[in-house]
Simulated scan of single mutants.
Amino acid sequence: MYAGTAYNTYAQNNVGIESPKKLIEMLYEGVLRFNAQTKKAINDGNTEKKVYWVNRSISIISELISILDMKEGQISEYLEGLYSYEIKLLGAASLENDVSKIDECTNVFKGLLEAWRESTDVD
């Protein structure tokens, strides 16, 4: 839908990002922030904001799909499927005003963020 938008936005706003590892972390954090805003908009009955925030989350996830290195094999294939499922889940959550689906997606990205931080920690 908005492939490249999330990356370009983060790149413009964070010119000093020291590594692609940090960028992935920021993208995961962005999904979590935007999901929280989507959930708030659903609870507030604000359709315009709901659509805006869910589209922002979907945009980031689409970017995550586009930057996968498919040469890495099974992990990339797994992530592509997982990310695609999360996009479908967010779309359904928006259509149905279902915050439990937002929560499900949020829990997945919390887990991904935690795993990413653990696997890229070099300290």
Rank of each mutant, 00 (worst) to 15 (best):
T9V: 09
V108E: 12
K101V: 05
I24K: 00
N13Q: 15
T38D: 05
G16D: 12
N43I: 10
S100K: 15
A11R: 15
T38L: 08
M1I: 03
Q37D: 11
N97H: 08
G16W: 09
G91K: 09
E104H: 13
K50P: 00
W116M: 06
S57C: 04
C105Y: 05
S100A: 14
I102V: 09
L89S: 13
V54H: 05
N8K: 12
S84E: 10
E96Q: 14
M70S: 02
L27C: 11
L95C: 14
D123A: 15
S76I: 06
K22W: 02
A93D: 01
K88Y: 14
M70C: 01
N14P: 08
V15M: 12
K71A: 13
M70E: 07
R33A: 09
C105I: 10
R33K: 15
L82P: 05
E63D: 15
N97K: 11
L90A: 04
E80T: 05
R56D: 00
E86F: 02
E48N: 13
M26S: 06
A93P: 01
I75R: 15
E80F: 13
A3V: 09
Q74W: 09
M1K: 12
D103S: 06
E25A: 04
S62P: 03
S76W: 10
Y28F: 13
V108K: 09
E77A: 13
M1V: 12
Y78F: 15
L112G: 07
D69T: 00
E80G: 07
